[in-house]
Structures are given as structure tokens and as C-alpha cells.
Write a protein that binds this DNA or RNA. Structure first.
Lengths: 188, 188
DNA sequence: TTAAAGTTTCAGTAAATACTGAAACTTTAA
DNA sequence: TTAAAGTTTCAGTATTTACTGAAACTTTAA
């Protein structure tokens, strides 16, 4: 399989960015290729298109499957497996966010919780714990908020996005609104 | 300067996480140390506490200053420079988000824009461009949205966070609300 | 049940990234 | 204006991470 220059440009770029997004270069290239290719393609096609070893492709496919970003597809009378992307671009963004949360926030949150269980040995540690509490609150806030956004689903998210700077206005009014709707539902 | 075990635990952990957050291990350790230390400390203090070369500390301080995460502090009758964190934890999170946006989104956005200017050479490229448009819209959405959140400022952000699942409800009502408030202000 | 087709694993190698230590440079008190 | 104190730079080295190619393993049609 051979890529047109346009497609190659994007695939290579996505590979470079991939490492910043949480997967390695080859995995990034593979995913990009699968996204912009309509028909399911085989592992060999991928290896050939990207000039990458077959073993490396296999590893990458495994990772993409773990992320649930691709699915297999079978052609009749062909035991080879073909691959295509799974879900929308939005789904993939959600996966990436979730995976990164796991790698970038969860470990720190849990470590800080442990540290906060100990009582401070001196004034310096007392100050340190105050700061750790702040970091903890921030991380917890981000985690809760992002899972909230995911729960909203794409449609509402889209509404929220389009609202843009209107968010401020809506917030200003929310007390009034929620109060009318159900007076006791306005705490958390 | 010597760190207590509690402080060391956090500093080392933050160093490891640092690389996932966009700065290297030493920079992460340095920032953590500065966050949990109340008094301004010198570059030598940092090097000693972290058992890291003086040169490396200098590089790290430069980077933290570029990110505007620290500021210098001078003691009377002492030409040495002392350092302390600049702004709140929230400010630092904003800096990190912004920096990552620059590294992780902007280059891809601009590349995709370029690609979309070319006309597709065949059906495959046409499909590819459709997909690229989707990716573009997603990235643009995230960028706009995140700068929107930054513009809201910490207080409103906090309201939004605390609102949690209430966001859905507020959204359901926003049409009614905004309509009443200013009938022509409800598009973007 | 065998062999052809395909998939996975892994040890060794290559590439990218970060760190050290020493030397060069800058600042300022005397 | 000099030298002591401090800061910055950089070439070489170490560490980490990713990739290759070959061998081991798995599946299934005949």
C-alpha cells in the first residue's frame, strides 16, 4: 500500500505529535493512517505503508485495541484480520483524555492522599501539607470535572462549546433558574 | 538544605510526573520543592536538596521562569538570588494547559489547515479530507473551549466545577433564559 | 494432523533526551 | 579595578525509550 503525499504528510505529522499525546510515534502514525483510510486494512498493509517492522505494527495494534480505538474486521474467505477505527474522533479524544488522567493525575492524587494522612513533624511539614492540600483539590477538581464532561455526552458538550463566552452569562443566572426549578437541588 | 522524608517523597514523585506534564524530571522536582517550601531558596539550596548539578538547576530555573512559575527574591545585603513560586496552584495549572495547547494542538491545527487548502487528487484523498476536517473541528473546539475556561477566571470556574452534574440541567434551560435576557444573543 | 498463513514476543540495537562537571562569563563589594 | 561570589553554557556521557528482525507461537483449511 502506498500513501499519497497529502496523506503521508498528515500521517507522519501525527506520528510526531503522538508522542506528546501519550502514544509512541509508530502508534500515532498507525492511528492516523486508519483514521483517514476508509476501507479496513491489514497489518501488512500498515507495515508496508509506514515502512515499519511487522513486529512493531503488531505491538501498535495491540495498544490501539487496548485503547479501544480500533476494531477488527473480517473479509469472507480470508483469514487475515483487517482493521478500522472504532467510534468517532470525539470518542478517541475521550479515550486520550481518560488515559492521560490515569497516567498524569491518579498516581499523584493517591500519593498526596497518603501523605496527608501523616501528621506533620514540624512547621515546614505543616506548610507543605497545606500546599499539598491545594494541589490535591486542584487535581480532584480537574478529574471530577472531566468525568462530568464525558458523562454529558457529545451533543450537550457541543452545546456547551458553542455557548462559548455565553457560559459566563448562564452561570450568572443559574441560581435564579435552579431555584425556580427545584429549590433544594442547588448545593453540589 | 535537607528535605524531610515526607517532602522528599512528594518532590521525587512530582519529578517523575513532571515528564508527563511537559517538563523534565529535574524541573518537576525543583518546582515541587519550591511549592512546598515557604521561604525563598537559592539555586545552591536546590542543587543540594535534590543532589543535582548546579548547571542543571540553572537550566531548570530558566525554564520555570519562562513558564512564569517562579519569581526571584532578593535579601538585603546578599547578592544571591532566591526563588519562590509565583501565583497560585491554579495559575500554574493554567500555564501548563496553555503550554501544552501550544505544543500539542497548534502545530496540528495549522498543518491540517494547510492540507485542507489543497484540492483532493482522488476519492481517497477526498475521504481523508473529510476526516481531517473532523479532527480540525475537534481540536479547534478544544482550543476555544479551554481559552474560554481560562477567561472565566478561578471564581467562576469554581462555580462551574461545583455545579458538577448540574451543568446538564442548566444547559437544558439556557435557551429559555438567554432568550428572555436578550433575544438575539443566543447564536454563538 | 499438518503445513501454510498469520500473529506475537523478545533480545539486541538505535535514537532521543536529560544530566554532569568543568570552563566561561557576569556582577559587585571593597 | 580586582577578585570573590555567583550564573550560564556546553561537550561528552548516561539514561530512557522505541524499533528491528528473527524466532516462537497460534490458527485453520484441507
Amino acid at each position: 500500500m502506498i500513501m499519497t503525499p497529502m496523506i503521508e504528510t498528515f500521517v507522519m505529522h501525527f506520528g510526531e505529535m503522538g508522542s506528546r499525546w501519550g502514544f509512541n510515534r509508530t502508534v500515532g502514525q498507525m492511528y492516523a493512517l486508519l483514521v483517514i483510510t476508509e476501507d479496513p486494512i491489514s497489518a501488512n498493509d500498515i507495515a508496508e505503508a509506514l515502512s515499519v517492522s511487522r513486529g512493531n505494527v503488531s505491538m501498535g495494534l495491540k495498544e490501539l485495541q487496548a485503547w479501544q480505538l480500533i476494531q477488527t474486521h473480517h473479509k469472507p474467505a480470508d483469514r487475515k484480520e483487517y482493521y478500522q477505527t472504532n467510534g468517532s474522533i470525539w470518542d478517541m479524544a475521550n479515550r486520550v483524555f481518560e488515559e492521560r488522567r490515569k497516567r498524569e493525575m491518579d498516581p499523584t492524587l493517591s500519593l498526596i492522599r497518603d501523605i496527608l494522612l501523616d501528621s506533620p513533624a514540624n512547621a515546614k511539614e505543616e506548610y507543605a501539607q497545606e500546599k499539598l492540600q491545594e494541589v490535591h483539590n486542584l487535581l480532584e477538581g480537574i478529574v471530577k470535572w472531566s468525568s462530568e464532561l464525558q458523562r454529558l455526552g457529545p451533543e450537550k458538550l457541543d452545546t456547551l462549546m458553542k455557548l462559548g463566552s455565553g457560559v459566563g452569562k448562564v452561570l450568572d443566572m443559574k441560581d435564579k433558574l435552579l431555584l425556580k426549578a427545584s429549590p433544594n437541588d442547588n448545593k453540589a
